[in-house]
């Protein structure tokens, strides 16, 4: 009996793995957009942002369910993508072309998917460690000197973190990587999942680029805002 007689087996072919990468990718994009909307509350002010953080924590088991779902999606997305990339690298063979000229739609974004992806993985691990695991919302990092004696909660932690230009620069580069990844991914997934037609491909590619830019600019605006408040216009 061939392995592809079963559903599990059918999910292990290249197309099966692509489908897994696509579906999990959509979940991750939904999360990213929600995460962005929530984080932008930081620009609204400390109350709005801390209230949002509080609300999320009050969800209790639901937040853990969502986290578990995200972790599963993230691990599946990365492991399948790496497996596909390895197979594709092997398929290209050992002898490279002397001259290679793109006549199709190959761009930096399409070529760098695995590189931007692995960069995002490294960033996410650091980011979760930085804010979720060590971002004590009432600890030392939550006090902003210029804002008085009171703890500023998670807002204060984020503010103090991004007041450091080096950390801000690192985050900005990382979220631009996310934007680059999405600028191809969102059009790609629509093809993978059998949705695109010849006519809608151009529109999807444009939409993907727009969302990529929104994500990169949106997330970058937070460290930029903090830098501006901390070093230029004052808190």
């Amino acid at each position: 009996m061939r392995s592809t007689q079963t559903l599990g087996g059918r999910l292990t072919t290249t197309v099966g793995k692509e489908l897994i990468v696509g579906v999990t990718g959509i979940l991750l994009v939904v999360f990213i957009l929600g995460h962005l909307a929530g984080n932008l509350l930081l620009i609204v002010g400390p109350e709005a942002f801390n209230h949002y953080a509080e609300q999320l924590h009050n969800l209790g088991e639901i937040i853990w369910l969502a986290r578990a779902g995200l972790i599963v999606a993230f691990v599946a997305h990365i492991s399948m993508a790496i497996s596909l990339a390895r197979a594709s690298a092997a398929a290209r063979g050992t002898q490279r072309y002397e001259v290679e000229k793109s006549v199709g739609r190959k761009t930096a974004a399409t070529r760098l998917m695995i590189i931007s992806g692995v960069t995002i993985l490294a960033f996410v691990l650091f980011h979760v460690y930085d804010f979720t695991l060590t971002g004590d919302r009432t600890g030392e990092r939550s006090f902003v000197d210029a804002m008085g004696e009171e703890s500023m909660g998670l807002y204060g932690v984020v503010f103090n973190s991004f007041a450091n230009p080096l950390r801000s620069l690192f985050y900005i580069i990382a979220v631009c990587g996310v934007g680059l990844h999405l600028s191809h991914a969102i059009a790609s997934v629509l093809s993978t999942l059998g949705i695109l037609t010849e006519k809608s491909t151009d529109k999807a590619e444009l939409a993907a680029k727009v969302i990529g830019v929104i994500v990169a600019v949106g997330f970058s605006s937070i460290p930029l805002y903090v830098l501006l408040r901390a070093h230029v216009i004052g808190v």
């Binding site: 398929a91 790609s188 491909t201």
Partner: peptide
């Protein structure tokens, strides 16, 4: 031992018979 599709669409541009990548969407 062929690789997987990551939508560079170089194939469509190189195809002498102008086979469309929409076929790949259909295969999926």
């Amino acid at each position: 031992g062929f690789g997987s599709c990551s939508k560079h669409y170089e194939c469509e541009a190189a195809c002498p018979k102008e086979i469309k990548v929409e076929n790949i969407t259909n295969m999926n």
